[in-house]
């Protein structure tokens, strides 16, 4: 299970990093998925660019209603409730504790999760639900892709091999947004069979905005648009949440069978979990 041989560079600037990528490098940030894939003989890079020494990539800033998460911001950063302002911080704090365990969270990065694009990734589901934008840099320049267009399939994204994912930007959530994150998995160590993140805004007794992210409900992370549509204008109530769960399960999700979770079971869990997550997210 040893990594195959590669050359190693540790660029000190973003420009040097993208040069290395142009030369075919794979990025090492937290390394918790890259080294895993190397051990499992799924990744055989000829060149690895360790970006841990690039200044500035570890910045986490919130300004003008936007949160910017640099490529080196570790998962564990989001465990502190105050790291990100408002309900977005609350949602991240609820989600992050379902990611692996503390030693992995100490090294792994949010941006790395988006680059890896595992279908069960919590961050990826939240990125699409929250209209995050992915910033990609290469020797050809910088571009931004909405998360909704970024994920193309299991471990497949719109990122070109020579592009460095430098940052992820999220719009902050309004202070009156209710959030919740729930995960269904077999043991503390397994990937989620289904995970759901939700953000709900209720004004004057009706739901005015709903965001639902689904992890491992398709070959890529999903935003449950159909479920969200059933909620807008509805009163936050158990029947409304149940109906949204049904919509997420039958219209939004496209579950892939796995051992211990065939399509029927997955669809059922999605319906149950979406309804439960919404109930928890509904502002009291």
């Amino acid at each position: 299970m040893k990594p195959s041989a590669f050359d190693y560079v540790a660029p000190r600037t973003v420009a040097d990093a993208v040069d290395a990528l142009a030369a075919g490098a794979q990025v090492l940030a937290g390394g918790q998925s890259l080294l895993l894939d190397m051990h499992l003989q799924r990744a055989h890079p000829a060149l690895v660019a360790d970006i841990n020494h690039v200044p500035g990539l570890d910045e986490l800033t919130a300004s003008d209603g936007t949160l910017t998460v640099g490529a080196l911001v570790r998962h564990q950063t989001f465990e502190s409730p105050g790291a990100v302002p408002g309900p977005l911080g609350d949602l991240f704090a609820r989600a992050v504790v379902t990611i692996a365990h503390p030693p992995i969270r100490a090294r792994g990065t949010m941006a790395g999760s988006l680059a890896w694009a595992h279908p069960a990734s919590e961050w990826c589901a939240l990125a699409v639900a929250l209209d995050a934008v992915v910033e990609l840099r290469s020797t050809r320049g910088t571009r931004e892709i909405p998360a909704g267009e970024y994920f193309l399939g299991p471990f497949q994204t719109a990122r070109e091999p020579d592009e460095l994912l430098t940052a992820v930007r999220y719009p902050l959530l309004a202070p009156d947004t209710g959030v919740a994150f729930t995960e269904h998995r077999r043991t503390g160590f397994s990937f989620a069979q289904v995970a759901v993140g939700a953000a709900l805004t209720v004004r004057d007794g009706v739901i005015t905005e709903a965001r639902i992210g689904l992890a491992n409900c398709a070959d890529r992370p999903l935003r449950a648009h159909a479920a969200e549509r059933t909620l807008i204008g509805a009163e936050p109530s158990s029947p409304a949440f149940t109906m949204a769960g049904e919509a997420a399960s039958t219209e939004d999700a496209a579950p892939v069978p796995e051992p211990y979770a065939d399509v029927d079971y997955r669809r059922h869990v999605i319906a149950v979990l979406v309804a439960r997550t919404l109930r928890e997210a509904a502002p009291v």
């Binding site: 190693y8 090492l28 390394g31 918790q32 080294l35 360790d50 841990n52 503390p102 090294r107």
Partner: peptide
């Protein structure tokens, strides 16, 4: 000072 998996870090890091 941080607990990490030493199988998921390179020595050169």
């Amino acid at each position: 000072g941080e607990a990490v998996r030493s199988c998921l870090m390179l020595a050169v890091q």
